[in-house]
């Protein structure tokens, strides 16, 4: 029973990752980009958990915890950046921030 679970869970993780990637690439609003990044991190966490479950080891969950930590740090810094971005450009459209080119 469980082995199929972990295999299917990997498929779900792949789907979620692809959705997150789509979101990152397709959305121009910074907040959505951040949401999509969270989705991708989640998908990665799911992949780790299912792998750990398949191999019967706690390492997958340990990795998930690390990913969680990463996501928390990323969210806090990312949101701070979003706020500064909004203050600077009065918009959240990433394409408006093109000063790096000049």
């Amino acid at each position: 029973m469980s082995p199929q679970f972990s295999d299917y869970a990997l498929v779900v993780a792949a789907v979620l990752f692809a959705l997150g990637l789509f979101g990152v690439l397709a959305r121009r609003n910074v907040v959505y980009v951040l949401i999509s990044v969270e989705v991708m991190l989640n998908a990665a966490g799911l992949a780790f958990i299912s792998a750990g479950s398949k191999l019967g080891q706690p390492d997958g969950q340990v990795m998930f915890i690390f990913i969680l930590t990463l996501a928390a740090a990323e969210a806090s810094v990312g949101l701070a950046l979003v706020i500064q971005f909004y203050r600077a450009y009065k918009t959240l459209d990433t394409d408006s921030a093109r000063e790096l080119k000049d």
């Binding site: 990152v24 690439l25 990433t94 394409d95 921030a97 093109r98 000063e99 790096l100 080119k101």
Partner: peptide, 17 residues
């Protein structure tokens, strides 16, 4: 390639992946 658009850079990363 240095368009300054973040999303283009992300497309590059995705292509690599």
């Amino acid at each position: 390639l240095q368009s300054g658009r973040i999303r283009w850079y992300l497309v590059g990363i995705a292509l690599g992946a």
